[in-house]
Structure formats: structure tokens, C-alpha cells
Design a protein around this nucleic acid. Structure first.
Lengths: 343, 343
DNA sequence: GAGTCACCCCAAAGCGCTTTGAAGTTGGCC
DNA sequence: GGCCAACTTCAAAGCGCTTTGGGGTGACTC
């Protein structure tokens, strides 16, 4: 069923039918209703390609998700982010196109995405500190919003980010207040911007108390459970083990917990753990009594906001870049407690 | 840069340029090279919409992911599945469009997807036992492949599935061999087909040893960490606690582990845990010495195979439905051991 | 030198929609 | 009754590509 057939069926011209369907004022209310009913009855829905060709708008947003080529790892945060974004897209009638790209062919990927013309805008995931994609996209005349920031870049662009530095500064201060001084940081890969900022926050908090960060206590890797386990096990086995762990991911924290238990210690009493919590739907940390004390910020909400920002920019092409900083909540759970007395 | 401009630039007709680019034989090798070089130099890449309109093929696959409306949960398996599928799409030059749909508007979603004509095929995620989407799609003349099966349906369609029944039967038998008789099953929601099949496998294994399943030991919920924790804690607190847990998800198993520790017991000695492991990139269970004894089957590989199947069906429309059953490996880890002696 | 192939290449139609510019129809007013 | 404005509706062009059905050109035969 296409426009032509529908128009023929109604005894109207394509123009009128098209206008009726798209809410143009030049059509009488009566005709509009008649058209709308016929469209529904005959199960007509306009061909998106043709529509796109004619209007120049694709009514689709591209998400390019980079897969870390070293570890072939898919960011676990992705599903929830997408779910949030799609709420916004759904309302606005936009589709979502995904491309997964290794690190190398990214630029090309974007260029193609644009040339092929099937997206009106792009969401950039997982920015690195110096992310080449951003200047590249700026030159491309395609609206985009970055989920995160690129610290090394000093050009304007739209982003939404969690206040990583602040969150980790607060988290570190919280642990310091409890008397911990040897606080390990199990971070993500530090060329990732979020990880870099978290470390900054951590160091700032230490600095304010006159403490120098101990490189031996800081690790940055892909945030898996085994990483948390291995790192925590190693650190706990040293002469001067940390009394608290700061983790960049709930998954890593779970690994830390395992190592703690295996060392015959108790989390929250002998060793404290504070983790960031992206509030993922399948990895709940508990609402009333969270397992882990955590800095919490919903990635899903970030997705929704990012999508809304992007849609605004598509609607108003001249618009200045827009930024949005989310503050994480500090949620007190059962995994932290006062530093154990020196023995 | 579009075809017309490129053709003008080369002093050729659009036809010739198009043919040269698409590898038709009517073009001299020399012209072809000249065209290809110009295209690259001018950064030309054909407009996907126009191409789609002209050819009738969208060069895109639709993934419709249902979000459980009750829990607003995104399937954690999704990211890895997609990553696998996109390997296949990339090679074949296909794109991937995502739509997220609540349970209600699914049929409509598919119909629209087809009418709008921007996908050539669909991957169906998360089938339920009686899944209305399958008969619906069969009537739609749009190739599709289901990730999983719908047990209540007796119509032919293409699917790829893990042998859930077999895996859980083996897992249960393994635990029975170790002397466990009270084995709890912490399953997914049992209207989901995979969960249903897993339960069947579990019951079969018990049946072969003349044991009847104890309803008190069986739970089916959304597979979160808190679910595993809560269920295990409750069950361990009963008069006749289970000596082993069979879990449908690594995440749930992590919750079980927490409950076991909290009860002052040791996993693998006092209580055994055997879980299914989808081999997710961010939730590694360990390679050489896995934490959990597990039935392992890579969801990422399933994604790749599903995509390849679908592409085949798109290429050869007449093709009969094709099915693919993956067998899970049984991986021995540290979470299982002989049933403790009765006291 | 005319006829016959290959070999290249082209003009134009068509995919399904939007949108421009114009035309037909009404009703109201002088 | 005639004219204008307002309201509806329409035909046709155009979005960027593929593809059909022709044609032109040169080399090769007889």
C-alpha cells in the first residue's frame, strides 16, 4: 500500500492525501478524517526511504559504539543508555541506527554515515581524553552529542556527562572522613576520559588532606570482575594493604568483594568498598539498603537527556552547543565503615 | 557530492558511473578504475535512501528489543549479541536499526518497520513460550530469525538457540552425581522460553534419578543480583536448605554467592553453585580457573550466526527456514563440590 | 567497402514521497 | 448577476539512485 494507491482508493490526489496525513492546514477537517481512517484501515504507512529522500531528513539517529579492540569488550552501560535514548526517540518518531566500529575506521564510519544520509545526528559514545572524533564531527556539519567529554579538547561541542571528578572527590573524602588513608583506586582505562576525571577527583580529595596519591594503589584497566578480584587480591596481600577500595564499576566492585572474602576479611568492617554505580537495570545495587556504598548516576537518564539534546539541535540547526552535567548521588550502603584501628 | 556531480566531474553519464561503482561488466576496466579513484578522491558515497528506493533493498536489519515493562529491564545479553551480529553485517555492508518496544505495541512495531521499508529482515529477541510475534512475522513476508524458540508454537521458522534443556539437564546431573539431592533452581521468568526449557532439563535430570522436583526450591524471576541474593538467603534459612543452586544467570549467581557468604557458609564446600554463563565480555567468569562451574555458550557467537542466517535468507528469498542449536559447554569451576555429609 | 560483432556508453523512466504553483469551487458582498 | 477572497484540491517537478532499452564506435570478417 503506497500513497498513490491510497489516493486512488480515496479518489483524491496524492498531494491532498499527503497533506492530510502530515497535518497541513490546507485540508478540510472532514477530508483529513476520511484520509486518516482509510490509512489506518488499509494499514498504510509511508515509506521511510521515499519520505527521507523527499524531505532530506532521515528521521534517524546514529549511535556509533566503539568496541575496544584489545578486549573486544562491549560497554555494559550501553544497553541502558540506549533504552533511555529510545524513550526520547520514540516520542519524536525517530529511529535509531547502530554501527559498531573498531578504533581504526571510526572517522570513515562517520563520514559514510553522513554521506549515506541516513542519520540526522549522532551520539558519540565513550570519548577518550583526546578524541579525534569530536573535531572531525565538528567539521562534518552533522549535529552530534557526546556522552562524556574529551578533556584534552578545547573546542565547543554538545555533551552530557556525569560529574566524575566531583563524584570521586566526594567518594574519596567520604572514605577519608571514615579514617581511611590508604585508599586504592581501581579505575577504568585511563585514556578514557571518565576514568581520567575520576582519578583527578580522587587525587584532589587526597591533596586537600595533604596526602599524596600512592601509585602502587592505583590501577586502571577494563572494568571486569576478574580485574577487581585480581587487583584487590594483590593489594590485600602486600605489606601495607589498603583499608578501602574505590571502584569505577559495580562489576569491578563485585570482584573486589570476592577477593576480600577470600582473604578472610569482611567487607564494610575490615575493608571498605565504595563504587560508582551506573544504576543499570540488570545490576541493581539495592534501593533501601544498597549492598555497596556508591556514587550513583543513572546512565539511562543520561541517555534520555542526550537524545533530547540532540533532537533539539536537529530541530534548530543554528543552536549553540549545549552541555549538561549530572551530579551523582552518594548512596550509603553496607560496604563502608570506619577504618580499622592500626594494630 | 552525488552521482550526478560525480558523473559531470568525470564527463560520464550517471549510468556508467553507477555501473562502474557497482561492478557491472558493461564498463571497461579503465573507466572503472578512473571512476573508483574519483569517487574516493571526492569522498563520494551513494545516498542510502535513494539507493534503497531504487533497488527496493534497505541494506539494513532491524533488531526489535522488548523491554520488560514490569521491570524496565534491558537484557544484559543484548550488547554482546549485537556485537556478534554486527560483525556479520559489517562484512555484508548492512546496517542495523534498533527499535525498543514495550510489550504492547510490538505487532504494530513490526508492521511499521516493514511498511516503512527500511529493513530487509528482522531479528527477534527474547521469545516467550507462546510468542505472537512469530506467527505475525510469518504473515508479513519479511525474513526473520529468532534468537531462541517459542515452545508453544508448532510452525516452521528460522531460529538459533542454545540447547537450554540439555545444558540444564547436564548441569543438574552433574550436581546429582556430586551427591546433591536438594538442588534449587533460580530461573528466569518462566514465560520466557529459555527459562521454561531450562526447567524442563532440570526436571528431566531429577526424574531420571527418581526424584520429584520440589516446588519450594524453584523460583523464576528477572535475573538480577538481588534476586539471587534474596532467594538464596531465604532458601538457606529454611529447615531443609538446598545444598546446591542452579542459576540461570551469572548475575544471579553472584547474588547467590553473597547470600552464601552472609550465611557464614563457603561456596563450593558447604553449598554448590552452578550457573549458566553467556560468556559476556564484561562479565568474565575466568578462563583457566572459572569462579563458577557453569554451562557456557557465547551469546556473541549466537549473534553472529543469527545475522549470517538472516543474511542468507534475504539473499535467497525462497529458502526454507533454517535452525541452529548450540550446545553449551560444561565448565568446571570452583563453585561446586560434593554434597556435604548429612549431619 | 559493407556488414557484423563486441564493447562502451547514454537518455530516460521509475522507486514513493513532498512541495510548488496553479486551478477549481464556494460563499459573501456590492 | 458578477467579482473577489477563502478554501480545497490538483498536476507535476524533484529528491538521488538503478536499470531498461537503445545507440555509437571501432575492429574484424568476407
Amino acid at each position: 500500500m503506497n500513497l498513490k494507491q491510497l489516493a486512488a482508493h480515496l479518489g483524491l490526489s496524492q498531494t491532498t492525501v499527503s497533506r492530510a496525513l502530515n497535518g497541513y492546514p490546507e485540508v478540510s477537517e472532514q477530508t483529513r478524517i476520511r484520509v486518516a481512517e482509510a490509512a489506518r484501515a488499509l494499514n498504510y504507512s509511508p515509506n521511510a526511504r521515499a519520505k527521507g529522500l523527499a524531505t532530506g531528513r532521515a528521521m534517524a539517529i546514529g549511535h556509533v559504539i566503539p568496541i575496544s579492540t584489545q578486549h573486544e569488550m562491549v560497554n555494559p552501560v550501553f544497553g541502558d543508555f540506549i533504552a533511555g535514548a529510545s524513550e526520547a526517540y520514540l516520542k519524536a518518531g525517530y529511529d535509531m541506527t547502530l554501527s559498531i566500529s573498531g578504533d581504526e575506521d571510526e572517522a570513515d564510519n562517520y563520514r559514510r554515515l553522513k554521506a549515506k544520509g541516513h542519520v540526522d545526528g549522532i551520539i558519540v559514545h565513550g570519548p577518550k581524553m583526546a578524541d579525534g572524533r569530536i573535531p572531525f564531527l565538528r567539521g562534518l556539519d552533522l549535529p552530534f552529542v557526546v556522552h562524556g567529554r574529551a578533556s584534552d579538547l578545547d573546542v565547543p561541542y554538545s555533551w552530557i556527562d556525569m560529574n566524575n571528578a566531583r563524584a570521586f572527590k566526594r567518594a574519596t573524602s567520604f572514605l577519608l572522613d571514615l579514617g581511611h588513608t590508604r585508599i586504592a583506586l581501581l579505575n577504568g582505562l585511563e585514556f578514557m576520559d571518565f576514568a581520567y576525571r575520576r582519578r583527578i577527583g580522587y587525587e584532589e580529595a587526597l591533596g586537600e588532606r595533604g596526602l599524596a596519591p600512592d601509585p602502587a594503589l592505583i590501577r586502571g584497566e577494563e572494568m571486569t570482575e576478574p580485574f577487581g578480584y585480581r587487583a584487590a587480591a594483590e593489594l590485600l596481600a602486600t605489606d601495607e594493604p589498603p583499608t578501602a577500595f574505590l571502584s569505577s564499576s559495580l562489576i569491578t566492585a563485585i570482584g573486589i568483594r570476592r577477593a576480600i572474602h577470600e582473604a578472610g576479611l569482611e567487607m564494610g568492617r575490615d575493608v571498605s568498598v565504595l563504587t560508582h554505580d551506573d544504576d543499570l537495570s540488570y545490576l541493581a545495587n539495592g534501593r533501601d539498603m544498597p549492598i555497596f556504598t556508591a556514587t550513583r548516576s543513572s546512565v539511562r537518564e543520561a541517555g534520555r537527556i542526550a537524545a533530547e539534546m540532540l533532537l533539539r539541535h536537529i530541530a534548530e540547526p543554528g543552536r549553540d552547543p549545549e552541555t549538561h552535567l549530572l551530579e551523582a548521588q552518594l548512596i550509603i550502603g553496607g560496604s563502608t565503615g570506619p577504618a580499622p584501628k592500626q594494630t
